[in-house]
């Protein structure tokens, strides 16, 4: 086995293992930490693909941003002695069934997809290309979605401020 493959299986194994832990843990903060590990391992996959920009975005936004916010809200709301109750058996079964179904669909589509092996060297993603593409208004440009998302975020922020103000 090559080192590359070893690395991939290691990361994939980490992601699978901690995903299962994250949903089965009965302590909420531990679940958040397992989720963090999953996200960091995912960014490791991006690093393997030489897509460093995506990897750094994954680290900043998900690991550094969203998980910190999740942990922060857990800190404010829950106590250390709090534990989730064991879910009802029917729920466990329904959840497992949905999980297996989703997994099956994913595996099926991966098997069905005609992957073509190339001998070309790995593509180096130039940051300038990413930048111009993001701000491009022409074909395949991301300027419009970018702006629409910013409006959405603005709306969310205003809503948050209004909710926070209501207390006073």
């Amino acid at each position: 086995m090559e080192l590359n493959q070893l690395m991939f299986f290691l990361l994939a194994g980490l992601i699978l293992f901690f995903s299962v832990l994250a949903i089965t843990s009965r302590k909420i903060l531990r679940a958040a930490i397992y989720l963090l590990t999953v996200l960091i391992a995912t960014s490791g996959l991006y690093f393997m693909l030489n897509y460093e920009f995506m990897a750094a975005v994954q680290l900043t936004l998900y690991a550094g941003g969203i998980v910190v916010l999740i942990i922060f809200s857990i800190l404010l709301t829950s106590h250390i002695s709090h534990k989730f109750e064991q879910p009802a058996l029917a729920n466990v079964f329904a959840g497992a069934l949905t999980g297996i179904l989703g997994c099956g669909v994913a595996i099926w589509s991966i098997i069905k997809f005609p992957f073509v092996t190339t001998t070309q060297p790995a593509l180096v993603v130039d940051m300038k290309v990413v930048g111009t593409q993001l701000m491009n208004t022409g074909d395949y440009g991301y300027a419009l979605p970018f702006e629409v998302i910013s409006v959405l975020l603005l709306a969310a922020m205003i809503a948050a401020i209004i909710i926070a103000k209501k207390g006073n």
Binding site: I33, A56, L59, T60, A63, G64, V67
Partner: peptide, 9 residues
């Protein structure tokens, strides 16, 4: 920048 935000966790 990304990594420095992890320490706070």
């Amino acid at each position: 920048f990304a990594v420095s935000s992890l320490g706070v966790i």
